[in-house]
Design a protein around this nucleic acid. Structure first.
Length: 216
DNA sequence: CTCCCGATAT
DNA sequence: ATATCAGGAG
């Protein structure tokens, strides 16, 4: 089996984007939020947890905490109890408090629109920072690589890298910057609806002919 | 690399 | 019973 050329892969990627854009015309962030701080907190909570569960938890959490100072003032034990069902609850509660303390002390209580400032916050890595930058500030500094984007990028033969950081570099080279934000949403939606980790529905897949598993 | 960890689908 | 879920820190 001949190795796909870089130009052929770029062209196939374009076709994949076009097809997924048609399949998911309203793809968007499925975490519920109304402010930058709400998306930041929701994304911290979304680690190894479904967005559906996060949205159940944040509905009550956001009614209790409106500002970064509110999270700082809330006793750790109460915050742990509010986020318990998202898993990793002790780490997440601790991180959210430390994160919000830093927001109050270093950023006037606001969420910084800056990659370095964001990733310096407790519980905020590159993936979470990319989510916040893209979805509330319209800044495409990188590509969001979560578990779905990583899995589908590998299955689709868009990367051979293993770490999220290295996969992101491959995707940045492969995809036009204007599509970065949508690309992640398309792959996440497709990963949830069609190309699940345990049960990929290749027979019904909209891009089966563009995938090394079933087509090409 | 390991650890953090509850809810859900299979 | 086990894999997986919009990961990050030590």
């Amino acid at each position: 089996m001949p190795r796909e050329s870089a130009s052929a892969r770029a062209e196939r990627t374009q076709s994949i984007c076009k097809r997924l854009a048609a399949a998911y015309p309203d793809a968007h962030c499925e975490l519920d939020f109304t402010t930058p701080l709400e998306l930041l907190v929701a994304t911290i909570l979304s680690a190894q947890c479904t967005d559906k569960r996060v949205n159940v938890v944040t509905k009550e959490l956001f009614s209790v905490c409106k500002t970064a100072a509110d999270y700082v003032a809330l006793p750790l034990e109460q915050l742990e109890d509010l986020v318990k069902t998202t898993g990793f609850f002790r780490s997440k509660a601790k991180n959210i408090k430390a994160c919000c303390a830093a927001l109050v002390e270093k950023h006037g209580g606001e969420v910084p629109a800056d990659m370095d400032a964001l990733t310096a916050l407790a519980g905020v890595g590159r993936k979470t920072a990319n989510v916040v930058l893209g979805n509330v500030f319209g800044i495409n500094e990188g590509v969001v690589v979560d578990t779905h984007v990583a899995r589908l990028s590998t299955r689709l033969g868009l990367t051979r890298e293993k770490t999220p950081e290295n996969i992101e570099q491959d995707l940045i080279r492969l995809i036009p910057r204007k599509d970065w934000a949508l690309f992640s949403h398309w792959l996440i939606w497709h990963g949830r609806r069609r190309c699940g980790a345990r049960k990929p529905e290749c027979a019904a897949c909209e891009i089966a002919d563009l995938c090394p598993r079933t087509g090409v």
